[in-house]
Simulated assay, not measured.
Amino acid sequence: MDSTLNSILPDGEGAKVGEHFYKVSQSMLQGRSSRENSQSNSKSNFSLPLKSAASILLAIGAIRFPSILARIIMGGVTTLGTLLSLMYLSRSFQQYVVSMFQPAVMKGLHKDIREIKKELLKGMKGSVLDFGCGDGLYIRDIANAKDVTSVMSLEPNANLHENIRITAEKYGVTTEIYPKFSSQLLAERGEELFDFVIIGNVLCEVPNQESVLDDVYRLLKPEGIVYFVEHVACVAGSETRQFQDMINPLWKTVSGGCNCNRETLKEIWKKKWQLFAWEVKTSGPWFINRIHLGLAMKPKVGTEARL
């Protein structure tokens, strides 16, 4: 009797299962043997060894099946655990995995906000920074804006750079790919560089939202505009919010650092933006389908009063 089967089933049940399948296989083969005997007497000489061999094979298969299934399950769990461990320990491996599925996920999300996004981006002009641009999802929108004069695609994940180049070439957009972070861009190039900044599902995964928003504020020219879209935390105290808080450590590991329970709009509001924002429910997973999107304008010095 297979030891793994006995370890899975209650005491003695492994033997009962094996005996049951052995009897069933014998009964099936006896019926088959009777039919064969009625067709040809010569075949009856082979029915006994055939029946015995097949019965033994069926019984062994029935006994060992739970063992094989258990090993498959354990192998899957081990593989998943190894993958999650690598993603947790290695930022570069995490970025590689995310780069494989992120484009499809983002395209699915943006189908639900296509029309409102189109309206919010139609005023894009001047120098544009696509902040944390991923694989270049917004390049098509940039190509449709007639008054854009220059484009920078800021994306530290090098695994996505080739996709950015391909997309930019497809839509005829000339863009500089900046492979570092916003703090480094400020240090190297200075402040007040851009008329328009696109932040699409970036603030959910940056280590420090306040610091990044400070960088964006400094990179914008006076009266420059930020377009933002982010999935955000659900209402505090709700069952969905409790689930978000519980699952966030795992979600953060498998999604490249994304947090599903951030109150991003509150962080944006802390700056002295002139702010217009909307809430949209998308068709995405129920715990990340609450979306805030809108425009925020950096006021001129001395005119920080909110609209």
Results as ranks from 00 to 15, higher is better:
S34H: 13
L109G: 04
D245V: 12
R306H: 12
K111A: 08
F243K: 03
E176L: 12
Q274C: 01
P299T: 01
A59G: 11
V254E: 00
P249A: 07
H231C: 01
V97H: 10
F131E: 00
L48S: 14
R189N: 07
S55N: 03
K43P: 05
L69M: 09
E36W: 11
V77P: 07
G134Y: 10
I288M: 07
G256L: 12
Q95R: 12
G257D: 00
L186T: 00
G126K: 02
E230Q: 01
E205M: 13
R189P: 09
V232R: 10
F194D: 11
T149V: 04
F181P: 12
R32C: 15
A296I: 00
H292D: 06
Q39E: 05
R32T: 15
D214S: 13
W269A: 15
D112N: 04
D214L: 08
L186A: 06
V148N: 09
F93R: 08
G134R: 06
R32P: 04
K281E: 00
W251N: 07
K221F: 04
L29M: 08
V212S: 07
N261H: 04
K146H: 08
G61I: 01
G14Y: 02
A233Y: 04
L29F: 05
A236W: 13
Q274K: 14
M100T: 15
A59P: 02
V97Q: 11
T264H: 05
V173N: 01
E115H: 07
V197C: 03
R114T: 13
S44D: 08
C234N: 15
G257W: 09
S127E: 11
E267L: 12
S52H: 12
L220Y: 07
E267P: 06
Q26K: 11
K107G: 05
G257K: 01
C204F: 03
